[in-house]
């Protein structure tokens, strides 16, 4: 289980308070969607969850282990996939898998086995000895997914995973998310596509202006706010909590 308590992040350079107060709980084996408008602090929260950024205040724990104290151990069991992440174009998927597998301290047998499973699943086996830079966007995304999942992480953090992808690759990613859930893995998904959330997620957390304003099941979200759809629930949460909107309403 992942617990996030009063997470805060202020960037030193521009003094921007990207995350003000986020508290969430993600349970084992569930798909947890993190919702929020652009600039709400989703990506910054995801980067802190994936150990890339240090929180200014607050605490993140994975099964009770503090992310700042057990960073290396936590990195062994998580993966983070975002559109910003690319692989070295000069190498083939085969070479990349061997390299990252060894960085994750996997044995050659483990690397071979996981590589074969993932390459087969993503349909890249026949391109495994072609340079990554020669691939199409979709193929690159598949290779990145395969490499990110190579070390068999139990928590997968996806930051807007379907952004900029064609419908076929989007579908493949959705299927992958469901497959990973079926394997008992915990998936944290940041997105602003509500349709994706309603189809895939078990529970949802909503962030507005750097603060968590909702954490509960997808099914309960609309009824608990007295509206009918997820869209309406999201808009209501936004209007009630967005600082400028809240001031206008008060006036």
């Amino acid at each position: 289980m992942i617990t996030i308590e009063h997470l805060k992040k202020t960037f030193k350079k521009n003094k921007v308070e990207a995350v003000k107060d986020v508290s969430l709980e993600v349970r084992d084996g569930e798909i947890f969607a993190l919702l929020g408008p652009n600039g709400a602090g989703k990506t910054t929260s995801m980067r802190m969850l994936s150990t890339l950024l240090k929180p200014t205040a607050g605490r993140i724990t994975y099964d009770g282990k503090d992310i700042e104290e057990d960073t290396v151990a936590i990195r062994r069991r998580i993966t983070f996939l975002t559109n910003e992440i690319r692989l070295d174009g000069q190498f083939t998927p085969d070479e990349l898998a061997n390299y990252y597998g060894r960085l994750y301290e996997m044995s050659p047998e483990q690397i071979s086995k996981n590589k074969k499973d993932l390459f087969d699943y993503f349909g890249i086996t026949e391109f495994a000895d072609r340079r990554y830079e020669t691939f199409s966007t979709g193929m690159k995304q598949k290779t990145s997914l395969a490499i990110c999942l190579l070390h068999d992480p139990d928590t997968i953090i996806f930051d807007e995973p379907t952004n900029g992808l064609d419908i076929l690759t989007q579908r493949l990613i959705e299927q992958l998310i469901l497959r990973l859930k079926g394997e008992g893995k915990c998936i944290i998904l940041s997105t602003h596509i509500l349709d994706l959330v309603s189809r895939l997620a078990d529970r949802v957390g909503v962030i507005v202006d750097g603060k968590s304003v909702y954490c509960g099941t997808v099914a309960d979200m609309a009824p608990s706010l007295g509206v009918e759809t997820l869209d309406e629930a999201f808009v209501k949460l936004y209007e009630e909590n967005h600082e400028e909107q809240a001031i206008v309403k008060k006036k």
Binding site: S50, T51, L52, V72, A73, R75, R76, I78, T79, F80, T82, E84, I85, R86, L87, D88, G89, Y100, L103, Y104, E105, I147, C148
Partner: peptide
């Protein structure tokens, strides 16, 4: 620039 730095940062390498 190429976006390849973060993938290594995520690994347990010291």
């Amino acid at each position: 620039t190429r976006g390849t730095f973060y993938q290594v940062l995520l690994t347990p390498v010291r």
